[in-house]
Each structure stands twice: as structure tokens, then as C-alpha cells.
Design a protein around this nucleic acid. Structure first.
Lengths: 127, 127
DNA sequence: CGGGATCCTTAAGGATACTG
DNA sequence: CAGTATCCTTAAGGATCCCG
């Protein structure tokens, strides 16, 4: 792995650091949920709104636009009445999804460890 | 992959969703940089501060504490004068690092695509 | 050297009303 | 149905000073 993300670099280079870019991409509170849903097949706006509990219209739209802008989602409008809009994951996003599941596997394996580590840390702190 | 992150669930369950947890873990502006540095070997506080351009003392300390709390970093204090503190990645963190490099590889492969996708999107928007 | 405490700014996100 | 626009709240992060 290259060192370009930890060694001193200019602002411009820093923004070019790939891992920082993808972290920013996925870091949002809702990006992953949307990506997951869209990877399983085309989804409609309202469908997403219902399936992702707690998301606001504003953030749903905003996150969709960002993912679309980065070429991770494709947006298709069917000019019917009422309008029908479908979002689907692009090739690129489906590939990304694969790596995300790797992270998921790690998280599932280590969830008990993390919970225990926190408990232990908090306890030591209280003393 | 389980659906538990996109199907409706209670607040409690939502916080238990593993992928949301790890995203939160890594989402911070500085977590990955610190993790990367610490995975390559023990690093000292000031060393991190210098090698991560733009980080503030506050955020360095805060991120270190969070990573330590989750069992991803181990903190060792050598009671010398002046004090010497070393951080090293735990087993768990080194494993996580492996999956992060997967993401990095994806990002590097698709960086040109993303840049082009944005350009194209912005251009279409301006019209 | 390695922080903690405090104050301040910015950005992320939520609530809600309106619309083609 | 699928948004946009507006206003407001919260949380992330930066700057600075201090201290063992």
C-alpha cells in the first residue's frame, strides 16, 4: 500500500488520495444502506424511503445525487403519470459492494470483541 | 449478506448493525490515516501529528482514544522524562486494515471513472 | 512530550411545507 | 410520486491555552 495518505502532502494531493475519497463516498450516514438496497436490484424513491428507517427526504435525495454523480448509481425516469424513478447500482458500485461485504464480515466477526473492548475501556476509565 | 441494515428496525437494532458500526468507526476524517500509520509499526503521538498533515491536537487525541476504546489500538506509556507514548495496531485492527486495502484497490482502479463521472454529471447539470 | 479543557466555526443532517 | 426549498438543530472539527 502506498504511503501517500499519511506522508505530508499538499492540499491538492490530499484530495487525490484514493482511500480518503472512497471513505468520503461511503462515510455518509445513509450511503451504504442505499448502495446495498440498489445492488439487489432497481429501487424506487419511495421504496428506499420506506426501507431505510429514519432517513429524511432531504438526505435521501442528497445521497442519491452524490452517488449518481460519482457513477455509482444510475437514475432512470419513466415519464408516466405519476412519475416513476428507478435507481440501480452500476457495475462499479457492485464491485465496491463486494469489498463492503468484506468489511461487514470483519465487523460481524469482531462485534463481540468491540463490545467487550468498550466495556473494559469504560470500566477502567471510571476507576 | 443479511438485510438487517435496510429493513425497518428499532433504534437499538439499528445501532447493532455491524456495517453501520464499522463505517462509523472508520468514517472519521482521521481514523484511517492513524490506523494506516499504526499498522506499519508502533508510532508516537508527535510522530503521528507530524505525519498526518492538517490534523489538530484535539482530533488526534480524540481519534486515538476512540480507536483505543474499540480495541483497535494499544496505548503504551513509558514513564520516562519526557514521557513517551506509543500506539500500535492490535490484531483486530491489522485484519481490518486488510479489508481497507481492498477498498483502496477498488478506489485506485476506479479513480479515473469517478473523476470522469463527476465531470460528466456536472456538465450535464450546467446545461 | 503528550495530552486535557475550553471556546468557536462549520458542516451534516432533520422537519416541514410546497410543487410539477 | 418524486422530488425542491427553507429553516433549524446537532455534531464534527479547529484554535488556543494550560499543565504534569
Amino acid at each position: 500500500m502506498s504511503d501517500e495518505c499519511v506522508e505530508p502532502l499538499s492540499e491538492v494531493q490530499a484530495e487525490a488520495c484514493p482511500i480518503v475519497q472512497i471513505i468520503d463516498r461511503v462515510a455518509g450516514k445513509w450511503s451504504v444502506s442505499i448502495l446495498v438496497a440498489a445492488t439487489r436490484g432497481p429501487v424506487r424513491y419511495t421504496e428506499l424511503e420506506r426501507s431505510i428507517p429514519g432517513i429524511s427526504r432531504r438526505m435521501l435525495t442528497l445521497t442519491l445525487r452524490n452517488l449518481e454523480r460519482d457513477g455509482l448509481l444510475e437514475r432512470t425516469v419513466y415519464p408516466t403519470v405519476p412519475p416513476r424513478v428507478e435507481y440501480r447500482a452500476t457495475e462499479s458500485a457492485q464491485e465496491l459492494y463486494g469489498y463492503l461485504t468484506g468489511l461487514l464480515a470483519w465487523a460481524e466477526r469482531h462485534r463481540p470483541d468491540i463490545i467487550e473492548a468498550r466495556r473494559s475501556y469504560d470500566e477502567a476509565l471510571a476507576a
